[in-house]
Amino acid sequence: MANAILIVDDSPTMLMSMENMLIKIGVRVEKASSGEEALSKLQSGLKIRMMITDLNMGAMNGIELIRAVRKLPGMSFVPILMLTTESQQDKRNEAKSAGATGWMVKPVQPQAMMQIVRQLVPGV
């Protein structure tokens, strides 16, 4: 499939680890290391099938990013997952009302990643 999954995290390690998992599942990966970078990539026409973003990032956090992304044309229906830690459960509802499809608990494990991607992106 042509369109990629966009992963957003300010930790290069997390980005790399998620990228490896996703590549193993066989999807193309686009990376952004901040909310701003993700947003500008999408604004300049990047087409994606799913986005996974961290919650805590520099200036723009995950929830703000999700809100902004949902307003972009063509991004209304794209599944978006937010990465949270075990202790940030209260943020999940906030993320959902900002437009997230769901969440994943960090550290993300390959099995969980595969399951959720297959569930949300048909044909993977």
Binding site: R70, G99, T101, P122
Partner: peptide
């Protein structure tokens, strides 16, 4: 729910 990226049918079929 579609605007959250949720597809209820896909979820129930799986």
């Amino acid at each position: 729910c579609f605007f959250n990226g949720t597809d209820p049918l896909a979820m129930m079929l799986s």
